[in-house]
């Protein structure tokens, strides 16, 4: 826990300054998770604000402060899922829909300097995003939380509200689908 239970209790009872402190404690972690879930740096803050907005209006439904973190992760997953679903719906070609690599090339062509390390990172991000783009949003989110965020099965169990065995099956299948896509890419 990044904050003590008392602060969460105060935020839950309507103390706005306590809520601000909770947001400030968790926002970096949540923004990082969102960045890796959605793969679009330009929309990370917007989705992050949506998460904390939902948190503000749902805090009173929280049973106890002990379950705050899984609750916050569940809100994050839901907001990321809603975002990805919206993105799938509108697939017009516009600058923000270009791949990250293409944007970087465009930046470089426009005179911006991209160093070697950043270029390599960009390639990794692009590769993983392309891979995750080939599976469903559900698989993408579950795999990212497990493999990239490093959440344990126990933590995922609390977030998803399903038992460990069901999660293992879902994870196994999701991983198989990503592996299949990975193999198809010939990497």
């Amino acid at each position: 826990m990044l904050v003590d239970f008392g602060l969460i209790e105060r935020a839950r009872s309507g103390d706005d300054s306590a809520f601000s402190q909770v947001v400030q404690a968790y926002r970096k972690r949540i923004l990082g998770t969102i960045a890796r879930l959605i793969g679009r740096p330009e929309d990370v803050e917007d989705v992050g604000q949506e998460v904390f907005l939902r948190l503000y209006y749902s805090l009173e439904q929280l049973r106890t402060a002990e379950v705050f973190e899984p609750w916050l992760y569940r809100l994050t997953v839901n907001a990321a899922y809603d975002y990805l679903r919206r993105q799938r719906r509108r697939r017009e070609s516009r600058m923000s829909d270009l791949s990250e690599q293409q944007v970087m090339m465009a930046d470089a062509a426009a005179g911006g300097k991209v160093n070697e390390e950043e270029r390599r990172r960009g390639k990794v991000r692009e590769k993983v995003q392309a891979l995750l783009g080939k599976v469903s949003d559900e698989d993408r989110i579950l795999l990212t939380l497990k493999e990239v965020e490093g959440l344990s099965l126990k933590e995922l169990e609390k977030i998803y509200g399903v038992n460990e065995n069901a999660l293992k099956v879902r994870l196994f299948r999701a991983r198989q689908r990503v592996l299949k896509a990975h193999e198809a890419e010939g990497t």
Binding site: R27, L31, G122, R125, E147, V148, G150, R175
Partner: peptide
């Protein structure tokens, strides 16, 4: 499997937590 695991780790390193 190993390649995929390595790719996840690289991805984690390539996407640090952004500052708000």
């Amino acid at each position: 499997d190993d390649k995929l695991d390595a790719l996840w780790a690289e991805y984690r390193a390539a996407c640090p937590d952004p500052e708000a």
